[in-house]
Design a binder for these strands. Structure first.
Lengths: 106, 106
DNA sequence: TATATATGCAACTGGGAGGTTTCGCAAATT
DNA sequence: AATTTGCGAAACCTCCCAGTTGCATATATA
């Protein structure tokens, strides 16, 4: 079974879970109230997120709080890095154009 | 059919395609030589990437060059933004720790 | 004009993913 | 001790998705 972070964030429900627990740790029950699916379905999503180490458990009595491992998100950031260079060069090109226009004005 | 950028980059082959054409525009044939799948399979991936506006076509004779719409990648960057705040606060906490250590040294 | 090349599209297939329902276990409550 | 509550795991179902094969179309070449 493929289990990487990109596959994990592909599902909109999982992205919503991530956003929710980014604010504060939550239990599966509390989470499932925010969605139109069963608690078990949420649990499956949490299992996947856990396997990707995007999420961590914290047992408190019979409740399990899930909290975000925000650092793991940096992997996506890292992958985006290669494209940021392109964005920058685009901006550079735009700068060049603006420089030319400036000179013409003078 | 769901067609969003997160689902698009979930597939490792599509991520590789994106990385390849980020360097230079390529045809489906040229692309398929980099993979262990048929040209048609690559074409399907390109279709999905096109529908997500992650990729643009450029017809030259009977060849079709695919080039990256790098700006579209910013959408991922945008989604990551909400977690960057958490990274920053983590760094701040680390800074605090370092400050304390510094003071103790003095 | 006939052939080779580059590509997209349709039909089919197997496996995986997300959902539900049912069950069992552990902790809290009565 | 009996019951309620919170949770995960297993079994099952449906549907989507990535892959293949075969075919149609358009452009270049002989």
């Amino acid at each position: 079974m493929r289990r990487d972070i990109f596959q994990a964030i592909a599902d909109p429900t999982r992205r919503a879970i991530i956003t929710l627990i980014a604010l504060q740790a939550m239990t599966p029950n509390a989470l499932s109230e925010h969605f139109d699916t069963s608690r078990q379905a949420i649990s499956k999503h949490l299992r996947i997120l856990t396997e990707c180490e995007l999420v961590k458990q914290e047992h408190r009595g019979r409740e399990i709080y899930y909290l975000l491992e925000a650092d793991k998100m940096k992997e996506i950031d890292k992958w985006l890095e290669q494209f940021r260079k392109i964005w920058v060069s685009r901006f550079d090109q735009l700068d060049d154009v603006l420089q030319v226009l400036k000179k013409k004005k003078k």
